[in-house]
Every structure is written in structure tokens, then in C-alpha cells.
Design a protein around this nucleic acid. Structure first.
Lengths: 136, 136
DNA sequence: GTTAAAATCTATAAAAACGATAGGGTAATT
DNA sequence: AATTACCCTATCGTTTTTATAGATTTTAAC
């Protein structure tokens, strides 16, 4: 299951991209427009800022804005920041690899074999989609 | 993330398929061979039996055995029984569809658009893999 | 047949982990 | 002084995973 964190984060990014002006947008406005708990969204936008997707401005007229062009924001990176690993099992993860406790040899593991394919197919989708693709 | 339930279930099925004899195999043997908590595995094997993948025999010399040929056990059905929906969001699920609370129109939703592609790619992998494919 | 052992079946619950949300205060900008 | 992002913490609810305790069925030995 996709976490709401990721879902909300994607929606917020999409909203910011659709506005297309570089003016900061307040958290409250995004939350209201996308039907999201404002407090929750607050923390999500914060991690998106910390990871270089968004810029922010405090005080009156402040808010969040996209730093990069939508076409340069690739889904793999967004998903990894918000959701974590793309792989469904740590032992097939490129960026979050971890060995399984129960597996003596992962090359012999049937789950490994299957999930490798699933990861690759998901990866291809995410690589072929930028934020710009999600708007149109 | 893939639940351990699914992971263990797949491993158990694989083990049974690799043995290839129709003799019942005891839970304890499977659990030991695959490093799985026996009691947990017990409940997993039960749901696999209830869903037509396994047969069982009680008493001395009893255990679990495959009902169908490994090549006839397709991953989509196994995953749906053990893990639930293949889709990462209910609004793109074929077998477990549900509308999102926060979406006025899912055809306009960027998350929907993206997750539809992810679902399709995962589905293709699962459809192209049978239990027999996982052994070799 | 009776009994004992071997195994699956059932139900519950507890523990742990995680997800989602809310509250309240701080810091920066206008 | 007002407005807004920032930060920390606590809580609630759900799901996952495992553990506990026994009931039931079958086989096999005597």
C-alpha cells in the first residue's frame, strides 16, 4: 500500500506544478484544495524541502514553491524520499539494500527472484514519469 | 513492503513444489527448512488450503501437499490471497476497488494516473510467473 | 477395539511496529 | 504586531507478527 504521506506529497507537488507561477503557496491553501490534514501536510512539505524539491518562505506572503521544473522532477526520486524503497523486499532494493535473516542464499530464493522482476518493472514506470507527465 | 505472511507463504509453496512428491509434508519440516516461525506458518498454510492451493492430511503421516501442478499456480492468485490487492492504491485495484475520500474526480488525480501504470506493470510480472518458474 | 501419539485445526491475545493526526510553542519575515 | 513556516512531542488506531492453549482428527500399535 502507498502511504498517505506519499499520496499527499504527490498531490501537493502536482498542485504546485499546476499553478506554475513561482509565487509561494501557503500550506493551508494546498491542504484545503487537496482535502489533506494541514498538520500532516506540514511535515510532508518539510521533508520535500529538505530533500531539494521545494523552497519555502516564511512570514506574510510566504509558503512553498517548486525549485525545479516539473519535467526535471523524476518519480523515482520523489517516491524514494516519501515512501522509501521501491522494492517490496529489502534484499532486492538498490538504495536500501538489506540481507534477509532467513535466507542462506538469496540467489536461490524464489521470493527474491520474483520481487526482482517486480522492482524492475516498477522502476521503469517511475523512471518514465516526471511531475510534468502527471499534470497533463 | 511485502508482508512476511506472503513471503513465508511463497517460500512454503516453493518448498512443496521442489519436493514434487505428492506425499504430505509436515509443518515442522517446512518451518525448519525455511526458517519460519512454525505457528505463524501454520496459519498461512491454512489460508492457502482454504483458498484451494493446498490439501492437508491430519494425524500421523499427515501434512500439507500441493493440489495443483506448479505450472498451473499463477502468481497473481497467490499474491491476492496472501497479500491482498496488487494495486498500491484502492482506486486502481481491479479486485479490491474503493473510491478515495479525498478525490473529487479520480480521472484528474495524478496519483491515480501514476499508480495505474505501476499496477499494470506489476500485474504483467505476476501473470507471467507460475510457481514452476520460481523453482528453476 | 482401545489407547496413545502425531498431526492439523481453532481461537485468542499480546506485543511490536507503523501510520496518521493533533497540539503547542519557536523562529523568521513582512 | 501579524503572518507564516518550522519543530518537537504525544496520541490514537490499525496492522503485522508472534505466542499461548487447547480441540479435533487420523493413524498405528497393542
Amino acid at each position: 500500500m502507498l502511504s498517505k504521506k506519499t499520496k499527499y506529497g504527490l498531490k501537493a507537488l502536482t498542485y504546485l506544478a499546476s499553478i506554475s507561477s513561482k509565487e509561494p503557496v501557503q500550506i493551508a491553501e494546498i491542504a484545503k484544495h487537496e482535502n489533506i490534514s494541514q498538520k500532516f501536510l506540514e511535515s510532508i512539505l518539510l521533508t520535500l524541502r529538505r530533500n531539494g524539491f521545494l523552497g519555502s518562505k516564511k512570514g506574510k506572503g510566504g509558503g512553498y514553491y517548486l525549485i525545479k521544473e516539473p519535467k526535471d522532477i523524476i518519480m523515482t526520486s520523489v517516491i524514494r524520499v516519501l515512501e522509501g524503497p521501491i522494492a517490496m523486499v529489502p534484499c532486492v532494493s538498490l538504495n536500501f539494500y538489506e540481507k534477509c535473516d532467513d535466507c542462506p542464499d538469496e540467489n536461490e530464493c524464489s521470493v527474491h527472484k520474483l520481487m526482482l522482476q517486480v522492482r524492475d518493472s516498477a522502476l521503469e514506470v517511475y523512471r518514465n514519469n516526471t511531475l510534468a507527465d502527471l499534470i497533463s
